[in-house]
Nucleic acid binder design. Structure first.
Length: 200
DNA sequence: ATTTTCAAT
C-alpha cells in the first residue's frame, strides 16, 4: 500500500492547472485530486515521511482512498497536509471526523482550491466542514503560495515556473471569505431560532 | 446574464 503511493508519479502540468484552477464555474471537473505530504514526528523534529497525489477512482472519493492509506501507517505522530481540488463532500467529512477522533496521533491540515456544493445555506457540505473544524482539522482555501508550493512539489514542471491564471487571487479571496462565513460558530438554525424568539 | 460540482451516457 505504502509503496504504491510513494511510486505515484508527478502530476502533468495541464492536469494540475485544469483541476486546481479556482474558477467560479468549474465545468467539467468531474474528478478530484488530492496532493499530500505526510510528516512524521521523530523526537523534536518532523521529517517528511511520504508525499504524492491521488485521484478518486471507481466511485470512491479520494478522501476515502487516502483514509485507507492513513489507516495503514505504522504507529507514531504524524502531521498530514493535503491539497484538494474540491473540498470534501458531507459524507467524507463525517467519515473523516470519525476517523480522526479515533486517531489522536494525527494532525490534519486541509487546503482546498474550490468549495464543493457549498452554495446553499443549508447544504450538508457546509455542516460537514463545520464538523471537521470541530474535530480539530484546519481547513483553508488555497492561495497563490499554496498553488506555487504544489507546483514545485507535485507537478512534473520540467523547469517551468508556476504561472498564475487570471483571477487566481480574486477567486481565492472570495472563496476564503465564503469559507470563513461557513465556519462561523453561528449556524442558520441558531439564527432562525433567534429570529423566532424576537418574533420576526 | 449566466454558467458547476469525486458523472453518466
Amino acid at each position: 500500500m505504502m509503496l504504491l503511493f510513494s511510486l505515484s508519479v508527478l502530476l502533468p502540468r495541464k492536469k494540475f492547472i485544469f483541476h486546481y484552477k479556482n474558477v467560479r464555474w468549474a465545468r467539467g471537473r468531474n474528478e478530484t485530486y488530492l496532493c499530500f505530504v505526510v510528516k512524521r514526528r521523530v523526537g523534536p523534529d518532523s521529517l517528511t515521511f511520504d508525499f504524492g497525489h491521488l485521484r478518486n477512482r471507481n466511485g470512491c472519493h479520494v478522501e476515502m482512498l487516502f483514509l485507507r492509506y492513513l489507516g495503514a501507517l505504522c504507529p507514531g505522530l504524524y502531521s498530514i497536509t493535503w491539497f484538494c481540488s474540491w473540498s470534501p463532500c458531507a459524507n467524507c467529512s463525517i467519515r473523516l471526523a470519525q476517523f480522526l477522533s479515533q486517531m489522536p496521533n494525527l494532525r490534519l491540515r486541509i487546503f482546498v482550491s474550490r468549495l464543493y456544493f457549498c452554495d446553499m445555506e443549508d447544504s450538508r457540505e457546509r455542516d460537514g466542514l463545520r464538523m471537521l473544524k470541530k474535530a480539530g482539522v484546519q481547513i483553508t482555501v488555497m492561495t497563490y503560495k499554496d498553488f506555487f508550493y504544489c507546483w514545485q512539489t507535485f507537478v512534473a514542471r520540467k523547469q517551468s515556473n508556476f504561472k498564475a491564471w487570471d483571477e487566481l487571487h480574486q477567486n481565492s479571496v472570495r472563496l476564503a471569505r465564503k469559507l470563513h462565513r461557513i465556519l462561523q460558530p453561528f449556524e442558520t438554525e441558531d439564527l432562525r431560532d433567534a429570529f423566532k424568539l424576537l418574533g420576526l
